[in-house]
Computed example of a mutant assay.
Amino acid sequence: MARAGVTAERLTRAAADLADEIGFQNVTVSALARGFDVKPAALYAHVKDLQDLRVRVAELALTELADRAAAALAGRSGKDALVAFAHVYRDYAKQHPGRYYAAAQIELDPETAATSSAHRNAEMTRAILRGYELSDPDQTDAVRLLGSIFHGYVSLETAGRFDRHPRDVDASWSRALDALDVLLRHWPPA
């Protein structure tokens, strides 16, 4: 890439692509600068530091996830919405492992979180749960449960933890979603 045209947005996208290739934790300002054929110091005119760049990648990933989820959820409710949302989450993590890691692991400060797509993702999850007639605090508990299950399954799957078992991973995923639907429809009373 040429020196001309370096912007914070292009750096963020390049860092996200690099994270998908080599892992989010391996992205450095030096590695990114090599891709733009500039000295690392030149990048600091566009991003404050490595942490700023990582937060930008996390925000990009959260926006991409929210955009995909919104498209997948349009016109759906109940189990159909739950399954669509779950597939978006899983597919994104498999297609963009570095970006997914950033979205899942980078803790955003409260101000950034309030204005980022993290809020959109949480609201979409709550919208799915309204189809199950859950109200708070049960809805909050269910949001946390879904996030834990989706993240746990995807993390184990992408780490290859399911590879040695003969059971088809997609079949297990489908059964897990069936079980979640049953649980959400029959949420235990407090």
Rank of each mutant, 00 (worst) to 15 (best):
A33M: 02
L62F: 09
S117D: 14
K39H: 15
M1C: 08
E64D: 15
L65A: 11
E64Q: 15
A58T: 05
E59S: 06
M1S: 08
E21Q: 14
S174V: 04
Q139F: 09
Q51T: 10
T112V: 07
R54M: 09
A179L: 13
E133Q: 07
V38K: 03
A179G: 12
P188W: 05
M1N: 03
R3E: 02
A42F: 04
A114P: 03
A114C: 07
P137Q: 11
E21K: 09
H119D: 13
E107D: 12
L183D: 01
A86D: 01
D49Y: 06
R56Q: 12
S30D: 12
T115H: 14
S172W: 08
P137V: 09
D37K: 05
A31G: 15
V88S: 10
D49W: 01
A122R: 03
A2T: 05
V88C: 14
Y101D: 14
E123N: 13
F162I: 06
V154G: 08
Y92L: 12
A4K: 07
A15Q: 06
A84C: 03
L156W: 04
L177Q: 02
T112A: 11
A16T: 02
D138H: 14
L145C: 10
A19H: 08
Q105D: 13
L32T: 00
P110R: 04
S155V: 04
R164Q: 14
S155P: 00
D91P: 07
R130E: 08
G147L: 03
N121H: 04
D181T: 01
Y89D: 15
P166S: 09
G75H: 05
L73P: 03
G131L: 01
R56K: 14
H151P: 03
P189I: 12
G98K: 13
F162E: 01
A2F: 10
A31M: 11
F162H: 14
G98Q: 08
H165S: 13
R161N: 05
L18E: 06
Q95H: 07
D80M: 01
A8G: 06
H46K: 05
L108W: 13
S135Y: 10
L156I: 08
N26W: 01
Q95F: 09
F150G: 08
D20S: 02
N121R: 05
V29A: 06
H151Y: 10
N121Q: 06
V169Q: 14
V6D: 05
V143F: 10
L184M: 05
L108V: 06
Y132G: 00
L146I: 07
D181E: 09
G147N: 04
D138E: 10
A72V: 00
I128V: 11
S116P: 12
G23K: 12
E157A: 15
A171P: 07
A45R: 15
F150T: 03
A31W: 09
